[in-house]
Nucleic acid binder design. Structure first.
Lengths: 334, 334
DNA sequence: TTGAAAGCGGTACCAG
DNA sequence: CTGGTACCGCTTTCAA
């Protein structure tokens, strides 16, 4: 009983229904200013009634502009990315672009496959936390406009979430509370973000003349944070700044399992603010601005698509400390 | 010093250089079996020398097959969706398709805009928890293959995560623990998922002859759950099943704020298992299988793209209870 | 086995 | 301001 899917309306059908030429309909959509207001209104009404939308593929064929962009992330399920994706999507949509999403599964080869497949139908790429080798990125940007997020390659447009200010504020906050020996529970050693945070902790601690020790979380995950709890304690610290919120959350769980109360006996600070105030107690953390990053990346890409290859600008997004309830003055030593 | 991008070769140039017709070149690439071996070899050689590759967009315009699909979700940042998106992406990618991601922002109008924009460049749609009116969905499926996730429209292909078994198991679990009066903290009244969970709670409670009261969370969020805590307590229940993990998490926070310990004084069960074991204590919950749902949806869509419109199959995914640490025998009444 | 030509759905130039 | 028409690059009958 199924109707054969009635084909989607074309510009021709709209033109006929509206009693105008195809070119007029085309103009109503791309350059309405060229037409009289009534004509536009009439055409739009007819188009709306028919459920017409310009066919991007046909348009692309004739203009060489695709109206699509690609967004590649290493792992959609990592809570850092969804807000970024959402913001990028929204901004691109506002500019009339459709978004291809690619998940590289943290794998450079996969990322390269994806970019290759998509390059033929997009006007540009946003690569978030790209795992690609530097020359692969450069090669891609030779074909299409590219914007990087949290990856620092000279000569390319990029938006960098600079966690240094927030991290420094976190160390100061701990210092003011009275902590004199703190831990940094680190993430992936070669990650740009990790290096940045680590450096900020060490440097600020140095300036304040307090001790900072580094404890590695074998993986930047809840489990990794949990497993780091004993090491953090045995390092005789009274507070820890974690690579990200997940690690912080795991650390809190590990601490709780060891009978150490947060924040009474130990203070914890996360990073990225992906958990909101949803932990108990609510986690003090460093803002990540992934939403801003997503939007900014699209804006840079749009500019590049408009104006041609840019000389490669780095846009830095500041961060700050969000004090909630996992930090307090150091308690009696455990 | 940038070379002006040397325009990429077209089929026409290859044809001329090879001294054959365009159609012959076309066949060399799409149906080489139709040509003599020498012709093919010759054309391929010339094409190789010129660096020619068929233009996908032009090909799509003439064949009507795009090699793309669209996936629309109400909110990328809702933790239920990323695993689904990830799985769908992976499955589609394995089939050689690129995925457009759309975020409807919970808004039917926006969802309609997105589908309209994408319809002209995709071979089909997956609508997850679609907010579209039923006839809008039907209209869309009139134009393109469509698969629904967690939306039950007769005659359409759909994959439904059936939380009834898991929910029933949750009620039984509570009953075995000794609870005799429990609460269901509900979600959006018209949501298919909510109705299903609510029904399962009420029915199973009836079968076991225990009392179940419904408490509405004004919003299916952490805050909503938190705000429901007083109501849950004043209903004199000793345990609650929440619409989803976020609500459960909020409820736990609300309870903690009221000085009620979980699970000693009150038991809590979530739904969807989006938090893993990452709450403290780890949340007992009902599995959601969103990963399976994402993969299954793509598979149904592929089948539909291959074989033409289906008669509309519902694929149901079972669920089960995951017992962690937020449930225990009822404590002394608060 | 190969060539010629008619689209696919738009855009943009050229008249009027 | 609007209509007519030649493309965009490729696929696909239809003939030869």
């Amino acid at each position: 009983m199924d109707q054969p899917p009635k084909s989607i309306p074309t510009i021709e059908q709209v033109a006929r229904a509206a009693g105008v030429a195809r070119s007029t309909v085309s103009r109503a959509f791309s350059r309405p200013g060229m037409l009289s207001a009534e004509t536009v209104a009439h055409i739009m009404a007819v188009a709306g009634r028919l459920g017409y939308a310009p066919n991007q593929v046909a348009r692309a064929l004739s203009t060489g502009r695709y109206g699509n962009i690609a967004l590649i992330v290493p792992d959609v399920a990592n809570p850092f990315f969804p807000p970024l994706i959402r913001a990028a999507e929204a901004r691109a949509d506002a500019a009339g672009l459709c978004v291809f999403l690619g998940d590289s599964d943290e794998d450079p080869a996969q990322e390269e496959r994806l970019t290759g497949k998509m390059a033929a139908q997009v006007d540009g790429f946003v690569l978030a936390s790209s795992r690609l080798a530097e020359d692969a990125v450069r090669a891609l940007r030779g074909r299409r406009p590219v914007v990087l997020v949290n990856r620092d390659i000279d000569g390319l447009d990029r938006v960098l979430i600079d966690s240094a200010p927030g991290t420094a504020a976190a160390v100061r906050h701990l210092h003011e509370l009275g902590h004199r020996r703190i831990a940094y529970v680190g993430g992936p050693p070669f990650s740009w973000s990790n290096q940045q945070r680590r450096t900020a902790v060490l440097q600020t601690a140095g300036e304040l003349a307090i001790e900072a020790v580094e404890v590695a979380a074998e993986r930047p995950s809840y489990e990794g944070g949990m497993a780091a709890a004993p090491a953090v304690l045995s390092a005789r610290t009274t507070a820890a700044i974690a690579f990200d919120d997940l690690v912080a959350q795991g650390l809190m769980a590990g601490l709780a399992g060891l009978g150490v109360e947060v924040p009474a006996a130990f203070s914890v600070i996360g990073c990225d603010d992906v958990l909101g105030a949803r932990t108990y107690p609510p986690l003090t953390t460093i803002s990540a601005r992934s939403t801003d990053a997503g939007r900014a990346a699209i804006e840079m890409l749009l500019a590049q698509i408009e104006a041609g290859p840019s000389s490669g600008t780095a846009q830095r997004l500041g961060t700050e400390l969000i004090v909630r309830a996992t930090t307090a003055a150091p308690g009696p030593s455990p």
